[in-house]
Amino acid sequence: MKDKVVVVTGASGGVGRAVVRMLGEKGAKIALIARGETGLANAAVEAGAEGGTAKVYPADMADHEQVEAVADEIEKDLGPIDVWVNVAFSSVFAPFTEVEPAEYERTTAVTYLGYVWGTRAALRRMRPRNQGTIVQVGSALAYRGIPLQAAYCGAKHAIKGFTESVRTELFNEGSDVQITMVQLPAVNTPQFDWVLSRLRRHPQPVPPIFQPEVAAQAVVFAAEHPARREYWVGGSTTATIIGERIAPGLIDRYLGRTGVKSQQTDDKRPTGVANLWEPADDGRDYGAHGSFDGRSKDHSVQVWLSQHRTLVLTALATAAAATAAGLATRR
């Protein structure tokens, strides 16, 4: 990724922040997009300290005019965009009937349409050059909706369908532009501290929980190896997809019984912070990590397997050949 121009939306905190740091380590030229200018500024400093070049572009991803304008600025400042990574999102933790229409619209505008406008801006610049990569950071919730997150789950499902449609269009025109998705499990990010909540208790990710650096490894790897249509991070993502295909009705009932309680802590109330309409990190830097460090994993077998796929396949083929040879000798 050295010297490549990479755009990261939602770059001021959470997974986006961890991706920025990792891209800095690889010497990329990184364009950071988000609303929170304090978080953006510190993310740019971190990327620079790691060896990359970073420039800040404050913008609201829900506004397609702002997205187009910063895309023009990025190419003017840093050069042609090589990779565009969509991460930015917002949400509301509440039962669907307690979410106001304007809040639902805003969540959808940021979390779904933000990816649409980012993809559109990237494709407008990549298609004429016939090169470039778009990475959509998705979620296991693109396959399985859960209680208290109707707007977010709906948006993640929509991103998956949208991305598949765009991918087929690129195939149809014989384009060399690549688009891929990275489906994440529960991740320890500031999301649970700054998303609008109407819950009685502090929201929490459903275990197993992974550190944002694990997600960042998968995102950066996908940017470097975009030929696969989809990458999964964490065993829970695979289990969600398999379970949804085998027994969707049973999962509905199970989540109906357990999903509300499992997304709330027992020991504290919500923070009262909400970033739906205004950034939470304009005057405070939340960083990449949330408040669940003690319960979060810093590695993922699936990410390792993705990064060493050739080695694993070779080892499996060698083992199969040895087994076949052994059986032939016994005969």
Rank of each mutant, 00 (worst) to 15 (best):
H157M: 14
M126V: 05
Q131R: 15
S236C: 03
I146G: 03
P190V: 10
R198F: 07
M126Y: 05
A158W: 13
H157Y: 14
M181G: 06
Y231V: 09
L184T: 01
S197F: 05
T163L: 02
P185D: 13
E164N: 14
F221C: 07
P207M: 13
R144M: 05
I209R: 02
A215Y: 02
A222N: 11
Y152T: 01
W232H: 12
R127H: 05
R200I: 13
P128K: 08
L141Y: 01
V135P: 03
T189E: 09
T237V: 15
H225E: 06
K160P: 01
G161D: 15
R127L: 15
G132C: 04
Q211W: 05
G234L: 11
S175I: 13
A239W: 07
P226G: 09
A158Q: 07
V182D: 10
E173M: 15
A150C: 04
E169N: 11
Q178S: 14
V187D: 12
Q131V: 10
R201E: 12
T163K: 06
V135F: 01
R127I: 15
R127N: 04
A239I: 06
N188C: 09
M181P: 02
W232R: 11
I179E: 08
V233H: 08
Y143V: 08
G174R: 13
Q183G: 08
P190R: 14
P203M: 06
G138Q: 02
T180W: 12
P207I: 11
A216T: 00
A140N: 04
P205Q: 05
I146L: 05
N130D: 15
I159A: 04
G154D: 04
F171Y: 13
S139G: 03
V195C: 12
T133H: 02
S139K: 01
A222Y: 06
L199K: 11
V219A: 01
G154P: 06
V195E: 08
A158E: 09
V214C: 03
V182A: 09
G138K: 02
V177I: 10
L184R: 03
A140D: 01
F192K: 12
